[in-house]
Simulated assay, not measured.
Amino acid sequence: MANHKSSKKRIRQDQEKKVENKYYAKTMRNALKKLRATTEKEAAVAELPKVTSMIDRLAKKNVIHKNKAANLKASLASHINKL
């Protein structure tokens, strides 16, 4: 267990960040599921910039890896083009 005041604080901060990151990651996954479930091309095209922006923000904050973000965006674009 941590003995220093600074290490105890770091543990508290890490726990808070973990909860926050899990929330944002789950929100992203729900948005992806919703977009992939859409069958109308117009609705999917309208929703794509919002989801792409969300993915970019999470990659910038290191919640997800930048390569994973790129792969997700590419797969979404491919999915929408097939509609």
Score class of each variant (00 low, 15 high):
L35K: 08
N62I: 06
T52M: 05
R29L: 10
K61R: 13
H4A: 03
H4N: 09
K26Y: 03
A44W: 02
A25R: 11
V63L: 02
R57L: 03
L72A: 12
S7W: 00
M54A: 13
N3M: 07
E42V: 07
A74L: 10
H65E: 15
N62W: 00
Q13S: 12
Q15H: 09
S7G: 07
I80T: 10
R10F: 02
K34Q: 08
K73A: 15
E20G: 04
N62S: 14
H4I: 08
V51M: 02
L32W: 04
E20D: 08
S53L: 06
L48V: 03
L72R: 01
N3V: 11
S78P: 00
H79Y: 08
N71Q: 12
R57I: 05
M28N: 00
A59Q: 07
K60A: 12
T38M: 14
N71F: 10
R36I: 04
N62A: 00
S78M: 05
A44F: 04
K33V: 03
N30T: 11
A70D: 14
A37Q: 12
Q13C: 02
K82M: 08
T52V: 04
K26C: 03
I64M: 15
K9D: 04
N30D: 04
S53H: 15
K73I: 14
T38H: 03
K60D: 14
V45T: 15
T39A: 05
S7E: 11
A59L: 10
M28F: 07
T38Y: 03
L76S: 07
S53T: 10
A69W: 03
A31R: 06
N81W: 05
S75P: 06
K5G: 00
A25K: 15
V51Q: 01
L35T: 09
Y24C: 05
H65S: 10
M1Q: 06
P49G: 10
K68G: 03
K61D: 10
K60H: 15
L72P: 01
A31C: 01
T52C: 11
I55H: 00
Y24R: 10
N67Q: 12
I55L: 13
P49C: 12
S6P: 04
E40N: 15
K34A: 12
Q13H: 07
Y24Q: 10
A37V: 07
Q13K: 07
K60I: 02
N21Q: 14
R36A: 00
N30V: 11
M28T: 06
S7T: 11
A77G: 15
I64Q: 01
E42Q: 14
